[in-house]
Structures are given as structure tokens and as C-alpha cells.
């Protein structure tokens, strides 16, 4: 799922509109393919190497936020080797023995030094000393076999999911709620520990999804579950959702921000500050409505 810094959206009155990309754009498809190549050919390579290789394409991307978002999605689907658990204690023993050897006054060859460390620490110095660092974890596989287009679709979906993280409830409206679809919806609602209130009229079905404690204003408990549930909705043929979301952390406009000009306060010429303070939207603290009625294709 995308982190806050990778979210792209625009605000229009009380509505929030996710920044979708065109999944057919040749430039974006080529970029997705390049990133996929790095990961698909990266089995056995360290996390650090993959990061360095991907960086090449990320730097070439004019929209860096989009590039990082796509990279994050691939990283979320990548599996790495697990770090060795007792590497820390083994390292401590070797380093302590090495430190005592380095304090000796007589010259040693490197081979003699390493042999002395081995004898003193009872550890094999030829085994990696730092195998437990995340940077040295090796890629074992990518959990899904994405095509470039699927990866771009996944990015669009992740943009919605990132917004849904701050919601407490979601209203789904659909015209086609067959028994099979209903069964799948119920199964997933149960899996994600969500509650649903279903209303059916002649031409549509409305499902209000939330959690058992969603009445409590402060709870953020269900955002992750609802966001995780969202791909299930995308499998429907026709759907429409509406949710109240909080775009970013609310900006608390303190008195000093509201009533004072920057130059008066600081006595220093801070042209950027004036611009910045003028831009701070106090209304950000209000929740916005996310309405989606388009179909975000998933595979």
C-alpha cells in the first residue's frame, strides 16, 4: 500500500479525486516494464543492488512520486531471505577478539590475524560478518507475475487504498449483486472483520461497510481493513463507492499562524515563509468525500 508521501490526489470543494494514471500510456508502460525487469532478473541479488538498479529508472522518471509509488508496490510484492537471527552475538564475539588482536604491538600478516581471531572467538571469520542487515537480504521471488499494464492498474488501485486508510466507513452501490458476488463479498467482509448493512431496491444494492466500533469518532481501526477489502469491490462489473476520508494529517493552525505576518515575527526577511503561510489550508482538517464510480480494472 502506498504511504502518505506517495499519494497523489486533488481537492475539489468537498471532494477528493485520486490522481489516476493512464494505464495505456506508452511511456508509463515502458517504465513499468523496466522496473519489472529489474525485479524479475533480480532473484539472488541484494536489496541494496535492486534499489541501485531501480534508481536508474526512477531518476529518469519525470514524475518521481509515481516512480517511487510503482517501486513501492513491487517491493511490497517481493520476498527476501530472512536475516540470520544469531548474527549479532557471533559478530560481537569476532569483533571483540579482533579488537584485542589489533591492540597487540607486533606486526601480523592478515592471514595470521584472522587465524588468531578465529582461535580466540571460536567463530569462523570466513562466514559473513554482517548477514543480518536489511540491505544484504536477497530477493527470492516476486509473489505475483505482473504485466506492465497490470502493474499500472495496481498503482491506480493503490492510490484509492491509500486514501481509504483514513476512512471509517464506505458505501458501495451496485446494480449487479448476484448470489455469487454476494457470497464473495460476505466471505471477504468476514475475513477482514468488517460489518455490512445491505439495502436492496428494485434496481440497485447498497452496502454500507464499517466496523463494530465505527460509531466512536476517533477510531482509525477500520481504515486498513476497508482498504484491504477494496480490491474485492473492483472485481464487480459495475460499482460505485462513497467514503469520507481525511487526506493528510490535519493542519492545526495555531494562533501564531493565523494572526501574524512572518516578517513581523522574525524580523528577518523570509519571503518563502510568507508564501508558505499563505498556502496553508486550514480546511485540510475537514474530511473529504471520495466518490468513485469508474471501474478500476484489476486482473
Amino acid at each position: 500500500m502506498l504511504t502518505k508521501d506517495l499519494q497523489v490526489y486533488s481537492l475539489k470543494s468537498t471532494r477528493i479525486i485520486p490522481g489516476f494514471i493512464d494505464v495505456e500510456a506508452p511511456g508509463l508502460l515502458q517504465f513499468a516494464e523496466q522496473l519489472l525487469t529489474v525485479f524479475n532478473e533480480g532473484t539472488g541479488k541484494t536489496r541494496e543492488t535492486i534499489e541501485a538498479e531501480a534508481e536508474l529508472y526512477l531518476q529518469g522518471q519525470q514524475n518521481l512520486k509515481f516512480g517511487k509509488g510503482l517501486y513501492k508496490i513491487l517491493m511490497d510484492h517481493a520476498e527476501f531471505t530472512l536475516a540470520e537471527e544469531d548474527a549479532g552475538s557471533r559478530r560481537d564475539a569476532i569483533l571483540s577478539a579482533a579488537a584485542s588482536q589489533l591492540k597487540q604491538t607486533e606486526f601480523q600478516t592478515l592471514e595470521a590475524y584472522r587465524a588468531a581471531v578465529q582461535a580466540l572467538s571460536q567463530q569462523d571469520p570466513d562466514t559473513a560478518l554482517y548477514p543480518d542487515l536489511p540491505a544484504f537480504e536477497q530477493l527470492t521471488r516476486i509473489k505475483r507475475d505482473f504485466s506492465p499494464r497490470q502493474l499500472l492498474q495496481r498503482y491506480n488501485m493503490a492510490q484509492v487504498q491509500a486514501l481509504l486508510l483514513s476512512t471509517q466507513s464506505l458505501t458501495l452501490t451496485t446494480q449487479e449483486m448476484s448470489a455469487a458476488n454476494l457470497r464473495r463479498i460476505f466471505k471477504c467482509l468476514k475475513f477482514f472483520r468488517l460489518l455490512a448493512e445491505i439495502k436492496q431496491t428494485k434496481d440497485k444494492t447498497t452496502v454500507v461497510i464499517d466496523g463494530p466500533l465505527s460509531l466512536l469518532e476517533g477510531t482509525k481501526k477500520y481504515g486498513l481493513q476497508i482498504a484491504s477489502f477494496f480490491p474485492v469491490i473492483c472485481l464487480l462489473e459495475q460499482w460505485q463507492i462513497s467514503a469520507k476520508v481525511k487526506p493528510k494529517r490535519a493542519v492545526k493552525t495555531s494562533n501564531w499562524m493565523k494572526h501574524h505576518s512572518w516578517s513581523a515575527i522574525t524580523g528577518i526577511c523570509l519571503p518563502m515563509c510568507r508564501k508558505k503561510s499563505g498556502c496553508l489550508p486550514a480546511t485540510l482538517k475537514n474530511r473529504r468525500r471520495l466518490d468513485l464510480c469508474c471501474r478500476i480494472p484489476v486482473y
Binding site: E48, L95, A97, A98, T105, V117, A135
Partner: peptide
């Protein structure tokens, strides 16, 4: 390292990889 045995030495590198290569080879923190 042999010449300055007993003195406090800091080894600087530009890249993490080289720092760890030195650490592995000379068994250093």
C-alpha cells in the same frame, strides 16, 4: 592499521559496500 596499532582509527569510505568489504576482510566494526 599495523603502523598505528593501539591508536584510535576511523576509516571512511564513499560507499556502504566498500565499508562492509573492509569490515569483513579486516574483521572490524
Amino acid at each position: 592499521l599495523n603502523q598505528h596499532r593501539g591508536e584510535r582509527i576511523i576509516i571512511f569510505t564513499a560507499l556502504n559496500k566498500l565499508a562492509y568489504d573492509i569490515g569483513e576482510r579486516f574483521l572490524l566494526p
